[in-house]
Design a protein around this nucleic acid. Structure first.
Length: 309
DNA sequence: AATCCCGCCAACCGCATGACT
DNA sequence: TAGTCATGCGGTTGGCGGGAT
């Protein structure tokens, strides 16, 4: 009856992930795509349960993640969406490309709540604190899961969520997170800080096309070892005259490094890959590494998954 | 310099839901 | 159809780092 158990609980590792584990997981996902999390730890050689792997990937390792603080615009988005949706973080996150529910939830609890209180707004009801405090506690509860069609009413007019009558429908509304991604580029203060845990050169991608890299793995989770500049260039993935992005808005120490995380998300790669420059296109078309197969085939920004190879 | 306190956030836990046998 | 499992979600926790004393 049923399926096999997800994982043997015995002997599985818990707690913070090491750089070595991250590398294994990234390599595996980039090679095989996201499927069957139960099998991932076994196949990737990890002593973790699939759930842990999934969380680590979705919350921290996904290349399309934005890192760093939320911009004011994003914060406003979160506030507006929270007013409509309550604590449905995944729904809120789905409107903020590159942000995870966990990240938004944390940000809400640590920053936005305080901010709203300071402004005299109750973060639960989104109403002025004086009146909100008169509300019975029960009414302060978030939207019951069973009644998703009736988001809580708010006194404030939301500029964003008006177009999002039904929260669960991303397709029917005129609100388009991809549009937002584009709009963000014009917004002052939009945070593009990327803080990769692992330097890309440390990622091992199995397969004949993947050049062997020196896996100078360190047991410490955040230390990065010295490595040669423009590591991808060594692999002949890019034309020699390809212009490498400068490192203005990252906090990396070595400005010669190119990080896969230098771009906000994969739309940046898409631009690169769809470059009209035929030489570049030709060079990119000849790529055969699993990583670039992923990139060529297009990162699915709707499901936020990589295509299966 | 040592200790304490507090905020942040990655990761875990438990539950709900849907898929599978 | 019932039992079991995979996955996703939201709430909570615990470790770490930085500031205060």
């Amino acid at each position: 009856m049923g399926r096999q158990p997800c994982c043997e609980k015995v002997g599985l590792k818990k707690g913070p992930w090491t750089a070595e584990e991250d590398k294994k997981l990234i390599s595996f996902i980039l090679t095989n795509g996201q499927c069957c999390w139960r099998a991932v730890p076994k196949l990737a050689g990890l002593l973790r349960c699939g759930k842990s792997c999934r969380l680590r990937w979705t919350n921290y390792l996904r290349p399309d993640l934005k890192r760093g603080l939320l911009s004011e615009y994003e914060e406003q988005m979160v506030i507006d969406l929270h007013a409509q949706l309550g604590n449905r973080w995944s729904k809120i996150a789905s409107h903020l490309p590159g942000r995870t529910d966990n990240e938004i939830k944390n940000h809400w609890n640590t920053h936005i709540k305080k901010k709203l209180r300071k402004m005299g707004i109750d973060p639960l009801t989104h109403k002025p604190l004086s009146t909100a405090e008169e509300q019975p506690k029960e009414q302060k509860k978030q939207v019951p899961k069973v009644d998703k069609s009736k988001p809580p009413e708010t006194s404030s007019q939301s500029t964003i969520t008006k177009a999002k009558e039904e929260d669960t429908s991303m397709t029917s509304s005129s609100f388009d997170p991809m549009d937002m991604t584009m709009n963000n580029e014009n917004i002052d203060g939009f945070c593009t800080d990327e803080v990769p845990l692992i330097e890309p050169h440390e990622i091992l991608i199995p397969g004949p096309a993947a050049p062997s890299t020196s896996s100078s793995s360190s047991s410490s989770s955040s230390s990065s070892s010295a490595h040669s500049p423009n590591f991808l260039q060594q692999f002949h993935y890019f034309p020699a005259d390809f212009e490498w992005p400068s490192d203005n808005n990252t906090n990396k120490t070595d400005s010669n490094n190119l990080s896969l995380w230098d771009t906000d998300d994969f739309s940046g790669w898409d631009l690169l890959i769809n470059d009209d420059d035929s030489d570049t296109k030709l060079a990119l078309d000849s790529l055969s590494s699993p990583l670039f197969q992923c990139l060529r085939m297009g990162f699915d920004q709707d499901s936020w998954t990589y295509p299966l190879l």
